[in-house]
Nucleic acid binder design. Structure first.
Lengths: 216, 216
DNA sequence: CCTACCGATCGGTAGG
DNA sequence: CCTACCGATCGGTAGG
């Protein structure tokens, strides 16, 4: 046994404690940071407030992250992982083309309705904050938004291959129209508390798909 | 003459100075405040920074507004006036129904492209900031958003009367779809710097109108 | 990971 | 409208 102390510890309490706790604590901090930032913004995310929320001291957070910008960047990555797990990955289980596109959109709307982040979609909220402030935060959010957009475009190219979308349709244009419905729903749901906006978005997506359909 | 003091003043220097200057200065402050807030947010709008920008001291601003929240509320009203002047009023010169609806949408897109506010549409930016923070700021922004939405709905009801929109279409649903295009364009234009998004929104609106048209 | 501290800046006020 | 100030909080660091 090379690691008698930890082994001994795990004889009493299961699991290798020390490193796991560091990683687990880091994840818990970033999860709380993403929730806070979805409401207060990445700038409004204060280190003292976050430290308080997770039961650490400010310098405890600096031990983990070093600077506010580093914390902000890692918070973005943590939010991206939550979003991937809750929206993108399940949708990728659906067949390519329109079924997958609908799954992406519907999962997004459920993600917003569920309130995984109290400020709505982390990227919609934080995107609006950083969109006119050049810098690494904006660059990262913009890249993630492009990836998200690419998911829809790929589905639409596949839908053309399977003759579910007319061949003269522009996948980028149709992707824009579908994603616009999601943006509109997010706005009305959060600002007006209007749950029907989520259903309106689904209906709007069908209008868009129908109008570009090869089978009309 | 009931107002001899002001008349006398205008005998020497044209215009009634004293009150005009106070009002003019107040307008200039609020205009700068709206520009700052469209980028930094209503919370990020700091009184010291604003005072610096307009060449006053902090307490000079307090003489005008009294508190930060009052400044924020008056900033919202100032932005609303700019928006009304630049987007809504010119569109109301167009005939009711679809021509007016198109004018509202196109004027909005031009307003964003022109960069009247450096952070894009004041209400889209600030709306995303306050949408999950209950309080008077959110209430006011939400009410303005409902008015804006009502402009589109009214156009669509008129379009039904003139048989440009099918009678079984739901004006609220169609208004949602049209406004979603604007939200999508705003997002892509600001986050990606993508000017084509503005054209895509116009095309998307035509797709939506066509699909609900009574003349297909 | 902690306590204790730094200078800068926040919204706001006193007194003129 | 100004100068001069208030306590609270900001991001960040020293030293352990």
């Amino acid at each position: 046994m090379t690691n008698s102390v930890e082994s001994r510890t795990s004889d009493r309490k299961p699991g290798t404690r020390r490193r796991a706790d560091g990683e687990q604590s880091r994840r818990a901090i970033l999860r709380a940071a993403a929730e806070l930032a979805s409401v207060e913004g990445l700038e409004g995310l204060s280190i003292a407030a976050l430290a308080d929320r997770v039961g650490l001291s400010k310098s405890g957070l600096y031990a983990h992250f070093g600077s506010k910008e580093e914390l902000q960047l890692q918070t973005i990555e943590a939010a991206r992982e939550v979003f991937a797990e809750e929206v993108v990955r399940p949708a990728l289980a659906e067949p390519p083309g329109l079924p997958r596109l609908r799954a992406l959109a519907h999962r997004f709307l459920e993600h917003v309705e569920r309130g995984t982040f109290p400020g709505g979609c982390f990227f919609a909220s934080v995107g609006a904050e950083v969109d006119s402030r050049p810098g690494p935060l904006r660059d990262r959010i913009a890249a993630i938004h492009r990836d998200w957009s690419g998911q829809f475009e790929r589905c639409l190219v596949e839908a053309q291959a399977s003759r579910d979308l007319e061949s003269r349709a522009d996948p980028r244009q149709v992707a824009f129209e579908v994603m616009a419905m999601l943006a509109g729903a997010h706005q009305s749901f959060l600002l007006q508390g209007d749950r029907t906006a989520l259903e309106r978005a689904k209906a709007g997506i069908e209008v868009v798909l129908e109008s570009h359909s090869a089978r009309r």
